[in-house]
Write a protein that binds this DNA or RNA. Structure first.
Length: 479
DNA sequence: ATGTTC
C-alpha cells in the first residue's frame, strides 16, 4: 500500500498489477499493470489521476486500465484502455483514442540477414532517407485528386492502396481488419480534414514517428516467430506513423461537437478533455464513423511507406520485403466481451495500447489463428523493440502496451540533450541515423523514455502477452 | 500527435 503525492492510492494486487480502489465518482476501479519503478508518479507524471477520471465515464465496465508504458495525455492517459457498455448508456470519447487516430506500427521482414546487409547498410539508409517523406506539414508519396478519391481511400484504407498498385494482396492478410475498418463514414470527415490529408498519404510526420531498419537479435518462441515470418538474424523494417493532419482535424472537430453536446445528454465529467457522447447518439455514431475513416487513412499511409521501403531494399540489396503485421494503437472498436459472464457489445478505447488476441480467438485471420495476434512494441532510438503475442489470461479486453512511454516532456528533453551529440553517440555505436531536424532528434532522445526492456518485462509479467522476438536497431529514419 | 498557437 502506498500513496502518491497526487493523492491516488495504489495497492499491489499481484506482481505487475496495481489497483486503484473506487472512490468519489468512480464507477469502476483502476488497474495499472506496472512495476513500482514504472508507475507514472515515479517521474512526476499525473497519468494516474487520468486513470481515475476515466473511471467516472458513463457506462464504463470492469476497470479503467493502464498499461506499463502509461503516461500523461489529452484527457485519457496514453497507455490507457477503457470499455463502455453500448447498450447501457456507454460513451465514446475522442480523447480515449487520441489526436493521432490509428497511429500504429507496421513490421516488415526482409529477405536478407544482418551480416549480408552490413556492407550495404549505409547506402540503404541513404536511399530510405531520401525517399521517405517526413517532417511536420510535409507532403507524401501519393497526391490524391480530390474529395471523391479521398472518400475511396477513407472507405478502403490499405485495401484501396493495394488496389491502386501500392502493394500486394498478401499484405492485406497481415493487416489488422484486413487493412480497412468496414464502419468508416467518410461523410463525417470534414472538408478541412480532407484538405489537410489530400497531399500527406505516404509520409511519416514528426515527433516520435520513424522508419527503422532492425535485426532479429533474439527469438524467444521459435514456433510463433516462424508463424509470423521471423528468424534469428533477419533484417526487418519497423514503420511508426499515423493519420497526419487528417486524423488530427477529425479529433479536433468531433471533440468540439461533443463538448457542446455534454449538457444535452446529461453527462458530467471531471475534465473537459474527456468530452464524450453515448455510442448510440448522433454525435457518438458520427465520431465513430469519422474515426474509422481516419483509421483507414492511417493504414493506407503505412501501406505507401511500405512500398517506398520495398523499392529501397530492391535497389540497395536486391531483396524482397514481406509484411509481418500492421497494428493500430490509437483506436476505439465495438467488440463483444463477457461482463459478469454475459457477452456484451462494448466500445473499447485503446489509446497507446494495442489489441492482443490470444491463439484460437475467433476474430483472428486464418493464418494467425493458431499463433495469435502479433503485438509490436517499438523502443526508442538506439534501444530494442519487441514482438510479442496475445495470451488468453488478459482481462484488459485483450490489450497490451504500445511502446516505451515518455517520461520527460519535450521541453525537458531539449534542455537535457543536444541533437548533434545524440547523433554522434548513436553513429559511434554503428546505428545509422537520418534525422529530420536536430531539435526533433533531441526531443526523442532515449533518455526521455522509459526502459522498454522493463516495459516488456512488466507486460509479460502481468500476463498480458508472451515474448516472441527482440529486435535491435541498425538504422533510423526520423520523422 | 499537429500547417509544432485560431
Amino acid at each position: 500500500m502506498g500513496t502518491t503525492d497526487m493523492d491516488v492510492t495504489v495497492t499491489e494486487e499481484s506482481p505487475f498489477r496495481f489497483r486503484i480502489d473506487r472512490q468519489g465518482a468512480m464507477r469502476v476501479p483502476g488497474v495499472v499493470f506496472a512495476s513500482r519503478e514504472l508507475l507514472p508518479q515515479a517521474s512526476g507524471d499525473r497519468a494516474l489521476e487520468q486513470v481515475v477520471n476515466v473511471a467516472t465515464l458513463p457506462g464504463i465496465v470492469r476497470a479503467s486500465f493502464a498499461m506499463p508504458d502509461v503516461h500523461w495525455g489529452y484527457g485519457f492517459p496514453i497507455g490507457g484502455v477503457a470499455a463502455t457498455d453500448v447498450d447501457a448508456g456507454g460513451v465514446v470519447s475522442p480523447g480515449g483514442v487520441g489526436f493521432d487516430i490509428s497511429c500504429g506500427v507496421r513490421l516488415l521482414a526482409a529477405g536478407i540477414q544482418q551480416a549480408e546487409l552490413a556492407p550495404r547498410l549505409k547506402r540503404l539508409m541513404d536511399i530510405l532517407g531520401d525517399t521517405t517523406p517526413r517532417g511536420a506539414g510535409r507532403g507524401g508519396l501519393w497526391k490524391l485528386s480530390g474529395r471523391a478519391q479521398m472518400e475511396k481511400l477513407l472507405t478502403g484504407g490499405a485495401r484501396y492502396a493495394v488496389e491502386r498498385g501500392h502493394g500486394v494482396p498478401q499484405d492485406l492478410g497481415r493487416c489488422e481488419d484486413c487493412g480497412a475498418l468496414t464502419t468508416a463514414d467518410p461523410e463525417q470527415v470534414g472538408q478541412r480534414a480532407v484538405e489537410r490529408g489530400l497531399h500527406q498519404v505516404g509520409s511519416l510526420g514528426s515527433g516520435n514517428h520513424f522508419l527503422e531498419v532492425q535485426a532479429v537479435d533474439r527469438v524467444y518462441d521459435e514456433r510463433t516467430a516462424t508463424a509470423f515470418g521471423l528468424r534469428d538474424g533477419q533484417v526487418c523494417v519497423m514503420i511508426h506513423c499515423g493519420s497526419r493532419g487528417l486524423g488530427h482535424q477529425v479529433c479536433t472537430d468531433h471533440v468540439r461537437v461533443m463538448d457542446h453536446s455534454l449538457r444535452a445528454y446529461g453527462i458530467v465529467i471531471p475534465d473537459r478533455q474527456l468530452a464524450c457522447a453515448p455510442v448510440v447518439s448522433p454525435p457518438g455514431r458520427d465520431y465513430l464513423g469519422a474515426m474509422a475513416a481516419a483509421a483507414n487513412y492511417g493504414r493506407a499511409n503505412r501501406q505507401l511507406l511500405t512500398e517506398a521501403a520495398r523499392r529501397a531494399f530492391a535497389t540497395a540489396a536486391g531483396v524482397g520485403v514481406d509484411l509481418v503485421y500492421d497494428v493500430s494503437h490509437n483506436m476505439a472498436k465495438i467488440e463483444t466481451h463477457e461482463v459478469d459472464g454475459v457477452p456484451r457489445p462494448l466500445c473499447v478505447h485503446r489509446k497507446g495500447a494495442t489489441l492482443a488476441l490470444p491463439p484460437g480467438h475467433p476474430d483472428l485471420p486464418e493464418d494467425l489463428a493458431e499463433a495469435g495476434q502479433p503485438v509490436l512494441v517499438p523502443g526508442t532510438m538506439g534501444t530494442a523493440s519487441y514482438v510479442m503475442v496475445g495470451t488468453s489470461g488478459n482481462d484488459a479486453f485483450f490489450s497490451a502496451c504500445h511502446g516505451a512511454g515518455r517520461v520527460w516532456s519535450r521541453h525537458r528533453a531539449l534542455r537535457e540533450v543536444r541533437g548533434e551529440e545524440l547523433h554522434s553517440a548513436l553513429e559511434s555505436r554503428g546505428i545509422v541515423v537520418r534525422p529530420s531536424s536536430w531539435r526533433g532528434l533531441a526531443e526523442e532522445a532515449p533518455a526521455a523514455y522509459k526502459d522498454v526492456d522493463a516495459v516488456a518485462t512488466a507486460t509479460v509479467g502481468a500476463g498480458l502477452t508472451r515474448l516472441v522476438a527482440r529486435l535491435i536497431p541498425l538504422g533510423v529514419v526520423k520523422g
